[in-house]
Simulated assay, not measured.
Amino acid sequence: MKTIEELGAMFLGTRLKRLSDTLYDEIDNIYSTLNINLKSRWTAVLFLLHENGDSGVTQIAEHMGLTHPAISQMSRKLLDAGYIESKADDQDERRRLLGLTDAGKQLTQQLTPIWEHMRVCLNDRIAACQDDLLNAISNLEQQQIKLPLSEQILQLTQLQDASQVEIIPYSKEYAKDFKRLNIEWLEKYFYVEEIDDLVLSKPKKYILNKDGQIFFARYNDEIVGTCALLKSDYTGLSQDASKKNCFELTKMAVTEKYQGLKIGRKLMEAVIDAFHKSGGDLLFLESNSRLKPALHLYESMGFVHKPKLDNSHYQRADVYMEYVGK
Rank of each mutant, 00 (worst) to 15 (best):
E184M: 09
G302D: 09
V120Q: 14
D281L: 06
S32L: 13
V120N: 15
M118D: 01
L229R: 00
N35V: 01
E269D: 09
K243A: 11
A241I: 11
M252I: 14
I207D: 05
Q158W: 14
D240L: 11
A317R: 06
Y170W: 13
N123S: 08
S201T: 15
D233P: 13
C246K: 09
T33C: 00
V165C: 05
L208G: 10
L46P: 01
L149H: 00
K205Y: 13
R180V: 02
T250N: 04
L98H: 00
L156S: 07
N220F: 14
A70Y: 07
Y170N: 00
K266W: 07
I183F: 14
E85V: 01
M118T: 03
H276G: 01
Q144N: 12
Q160F: 15
A253D: 02
I223H: 08
V165K: 01
Q109R: 09
I137M: 07
V319F: 06
K202W: 10
N37W: 13
Q315M: 04
Y24C: 01
S72A: 11
K277M: 07
K262C: 06
I4N: 02
D318K: 04
V324C: 13
D197A: 08
M301I: 13
Y206M: 06
K202C: 04
Q143G: 07
D90H: 12
K266A: 08
L23M: 14
A217K: 01
G82M: 04
E269F: 14
Q130C: 08
D124S: 09
K176T: 15
L100D: 12
G99V: 09
S138K: 09
A175F: 14
K251D: 08
L111R: 03
I137C: 02
N123T: 08
K257L: 06
T226D: 11
T3M: 07
E26H: 09
A253Y: 05
T235M: 09
Q213P: 03
E299D: 02
N220S: 14
Q106K: 09
Y206H: 11
N123H: 09
G264A: 01
A70T: 13
R94P: 00
I4K: 06
N135W: 15
Y298F: 15
N29T: 12
D92L: 13
E51C: 02
N288S: 05
S287A: 11
E5V: 07
A162E: 04
L149E: 00
Y320I: 02
Q106V: 08
E194K: 11
L181S: 02
K205P: 08
I183H: 10
K179A: 12
H68V: 01
G99I: 10
Y189N: 06
I30S: 08
D132T: 14
D28M: 05
D90G: 13
N311Y: 15
D318I: 02
V165R: 00
A274G: 08
L134C: 00
